[in-house]
C-alpha cells in the first residue's frame, strides 16, 4: 500500500478511500464539473459503478498499482 498524488493516479490503479472502500480506477475525468484541478476517478465495470472526486494535489492511498499496459485489456 502506497500513497501518491491524485494527479499521478492512472487507470488500473486500485485506490482506498477514507471509509475503507476500494475503487478500481477505469476512467479519470479531468477538470471535473468545470472545476480546475478537480479530477474524478470512476470505476465502471460489469460489477460496479462508483465515482470519487478529489483535487489533483490530494494524496491518494493506492492498494495496487496499475498493471503494465499489455495486461490492461480487461479494463473498459
Amino acid at each position: 500500500m502506497t500513497t501518491k498524488r491524485a494527479v499521478d493516479v492512472v487507470p488500473g490503479d486500485r485506490i482506498r478511500l477514507a471509509s475503507g472502500r476500494e475503487l478500481s480506477v477505469t476512467r479519470i475525468e479531468h477538470d471535473f464539473l468545470g472545476v480546475d484541478n478537480l479530477v474524478c476517478f470512476v470505476e465502471d465495470t460489469q460489477q460496479c459503478w462508483f465515482a470519487h472526486a478529489v483535487f489533483v494535489t490530494d494524496d491518494v492511498v493506492t492498494v495496487s498499482p496499475a498493471a503494465p499496459l499489455d495486461t490492461q485489456s480487461h479494463i473498459r
Binding site: 465502471d44 465495470t45 460489469q46 460489477q47 460496479c48 459503478w49 462508483f50 465515482a51
Partner: peptide
C-alpha cells in the same frame, strides 16, 4: 437507487 452501472 443506482443511477449508473450494471444495477442502474
Amino acid at each position: 437507487l443506482d443511477v449508473n452501472g450494471p444495477n442502474r
